[in-house]
Amino acid sequence: MFLVMVGFGIIIPVLPFYAEELGGSPTELGLLMAVYSLMQLIFSPVWGRISDKIGRKPVMLVGIAGLAISFFLMAGANSMWTLFAARIIGGLLSSANMPTTMAYVADITTPENRSKGMGIIGAAVGLGFVFGPAIGGIFSKTSLSLPFTIAGSLSILTFILVALLLKESSSKDSRASQTQKNASFYSALKGSSGNLYFLQFFISLSLAGLEATFAYFAATKAGLDTVSLGYIFMIMGLAGAVVQGGMIGPLTKKYGEGKVIQGGILVSAIGFALILLVDNFITAAIFLSIFGIGNGVIRPSVSSILTKTVTSGHGSVTGFLSSFDSLGRILGPPLGGLLYSISIGLPYISGAILSIIALILYQFYRSKQEKLSL
């Protein structure tokens, strides 16, 4: 996942300028970003269920191959429709990566170490986003298409490593039993665990709104430029990765996933409130890192609970979770932009409110679980 996300991150700072070079408008760029998340929303559960049926490794290979194809298509694009085709193919196939990787972790970890495993995946994703954009920015100075070629080559390397080194995590017997237990989307939401899916949606919605508006907010409030913002997001990513990779395991063993989720949501809400006080580089880095630390522990803990308590296959569960994550990322940027146009602090006030809603949803989940255990 680290190599996958480095490849994905490489293109982030380059894509807007690449699309502009091909004659794309800001509206088309927005659609180019949205169509990828839309494919993830639709197909993450599909790939999760397929991995329950045929195994994790072949589905991972499909996802990584899809990334390689999309990156090379983008590298050779000569029109906007080629970019759109590449993003659609990439989103459709690469949506296999995250749910299948999380299902793989669920397969090979004991319940008490589940959150630790999910946290390591989260740390790998975070570090990929730290290093990827930096690499993309450096190589874009040579050519705007070069970062896409590098990302495609990195995907091929990842494909080879997975094909040669990764062992299948599920047995034929477990695949057969999980296939029989696969839940429908409706039944997954109807149970007590439905609250956890919506919790993840609100967390992703608030995060996406922040990501879409913080550059404007920091420039207005503190006069920060794109270089400073790059460093700030790097610091935030490193802080989140350290907590996910090194602290989630001990925290969940000591306090349990539920308290970690509640603590993470509260820290996120505090982070949102503190962001309103940003007035220079240091306060931006500290306050955004506080938010990142809180936000970073939530998804691994939610993933851990779901894979331990839901009766359907791990791939089906993690696929549903990825869909809700994608839905938040689709709706978050336009909502954040709309709120920012009303008042520049509104995306962060609403982020704190959404965090409180997520906390209430967890309380509903816990009360339902307590009733079921009686």
Rank of each mutant, 00 (worst) to 15 (best):
E21I: 00
G315N: 12
L251V: 05
S193T: 07
K57Y: 06
S303V: 08
D52A: 11
K57L: 08
S153A: 15
D279E: 12
S187A: 14
G119S: 10
P147Y: 05
K167H: 12
L127N: 01
L41P: 05
P99L: 09
A96Q: 05
S44C: 12
L154G: 02
G245Q: 04
L164A: 13
E168L: 11
L61G: 09
G296E: 06
T283A: 09
G76H: 11
G246D: 06
L205M: 06
I261H: 07
I160T: 08
I120V: 15
I349V: 14
K371V: 09
V162W: 08
S51H: 08
A134N: 04
A151R: 04
S115G: 15
S304R: 08
S316F: 11
M118T: 02
L144F: 07
S367V: 04
L38F: 15
I42R: 04
K181G: 11
Y365I: 08
S171Q: 11
I360K: 11
S140A: 15
E20W: 02
Y104T: 10
M98Q: 10
S204Q: 07
S341W: 03
T149K: 09
S140D: 02
L306T: 01
F159K: 04
L31Q: 06
F198H: 03
A208T: 00
L144Y: 02
S187Q: 14
Y362A: 08
I150T: 00
L372F: 09
M236C: 09
F320R: 05
I54D: 06
A269W: 05
I290S: 03
G313F: 12
K57E: 04
L92H: 00
G126W: 00
S79T: 06
P333M: 09
R87C: 09
S169Q: 05
I275D: 03
I270G: 10
A68C: 12
S187H: 13
L83Q: 04
Y104Q: 03
I298R: 06
S51D: 06
I286Q: 02
T309D: 13
L83P: 01
K368A: 15
G30Y: 08
Q178Y: 13
G90S: 11
G332R: 08
